[in-house]
């Protein structure tokens, strides 16, 4: 049966978190379909270094492409790898990160294979589809669910006829879970020259500067996020004070960032970071759809808002009708006991 594939993105020999998240999702999809999960890793000097970061997520077969020109990523060689591998292996599903690389590579591969690609999916499910007009029923399609139209609607996209069914997913949307540290996956070191013509190595990367992410929002078990309702940059200090006590990270809604209360890299939402903490404390956040898209998977949601009708209250487990200035100091006080 045709496998589920995940393209693993690399920074040097480090596998991107988003790829591991997709491996876990891919494993579940493969289980539902009763097929194998396969992964592709392409880079330079990666053999022996990436296997342990990939196989434990339940990968049955890992295809390694190791050659000097494959890192840093450039469009053509990586496209040729996937296009030629997929022509040979005929996967039914291919997932990749909705990162700069995934959004450069995915469309190119989908165009060459004339397969459908859905960007920035927030959920992936397996289901059937009945095309009443054509009188056809499709079983076990990939439902690619994504917000569209600026986040105002949610669309379920399918690719009834074309394979692979391709989707990109942002970092943090799915959850990475090691299935078995010693999962017995097969490793195949492929002959790169058979997949990539010499003429593909035409883009030169002459300078490259990558900084480690300055914010730890994504993996934080507790997130305290502030919105426009926090009122000022000074009031944000209250969030930091509580964060220090309960070991949380501080994030923000777009409105708070636009108002100059905090830095851009703190943005939570569809166009910022997606978080899924154990506890999410929303301070003065009304809950625009775009913001909610980036935090709705949180375990427990506490909303502190002076507006009892703030939309975010509808998904909150605890609604505190009060101001940030009033409530946060009390939370600190009673946390300390």
């Amino acid at each position: 049966m045709n496998s589920v594939y995940v393209y693993c993105e690399l920074e040097g020999t480090q596998v991107a978190e988003v790829s591991q998240e997709l491996l876990s999702k891919g494993r579940k999809l493969a289980d539902t379909l009763g097929v194998k999960l396969e992964a592709v890793a392409a880079g330079s000097g990666i053999t022996g270094k990436v296997e342990a970061q990939i196989l434990p997520y339940g990968v049955d077969k890992l295809h390694i492409f190791d050659a000097p020109g494959l890192f840093p990523y450039t469009s053509l060689p990586h496209s040729s790898i996937l296009i030629n591998l997929f022509k040979q292996e005929q996967p039914q599903i291919c997932l990749m990160g909705a990162t700069v690389i995934g959004r450069d590579l995915g469309p190119r591969v989908s165009s060459a294979l004339h397969s459908g690609l859905t960007a920035d999916c927030t959920a992936l499910e397996i289901g059937s589809h009945e095309d009443k007009r054509a009188g056809k029923v499709y079983d076990q399609l990939l439902y690619q669910i994504r917000p569209a139209f600026g986040g105002n609607i949610v669309a379920t996209i399918i690719n009834p006829e074309n394979r692979p069914q391709m989707a990109t997913v942002r970092s943090g949307v799915m959850k990475a879970e090691v299935l078995d540290a010693n999962y017995p996956g097969e490793v195949i070191v492929e002959d790169v020259a058979k997949f990539v013509p010499e003429t593909d190595y035409v883009v030169k990367v002459i300078d490259r500067q990558v900084e480690k992410a300055s914010s730890n929002l994504k993996g934080a078990p507790i997130v305290i996020a502030g919105g426009y309702g926090v009122g000022s940059k000074e009031n944000f200090e209250l969030l930091y004070a509580l964060a220090k006590e309960i070991h949380a990270e501080v994030g923000a809604s777009r409105a708070a960032i636009d108002a100059g209360f905090c830095e851009h890299n703190m943005q939570i939402g569809q166009t910022g970071v997606t978080v899924r903490p154990k506890v999410y404390i929303a301070c003065g956040i009304s809950g625009a759809i775009q913001h909610v898209a980036g935090m709705k998977e949180s375990g427990i949601i506490i909303s502190i808002n002076t507006d009892p009708n703030a939309p975010i209250n509808q998904i909150a487990d605890y609604v505190i009708n009060g101001s940030v200035e009033e409530v946060l100091p009390k939370m600190i006080k009673y946390y300390k006991g």
Partner: peptide, 30 residues
Amino acid sequence: PTKVKSIENIVFKAKESKVLTGSDEDIKGL
């Protein structure tokens, strides 16, 4: 190749939420 199977308006699913005030008593309890 891609078809839209369905489109939904985003409607938040209302949860059962506990509503508190900002009083000392409520925050202490929380």
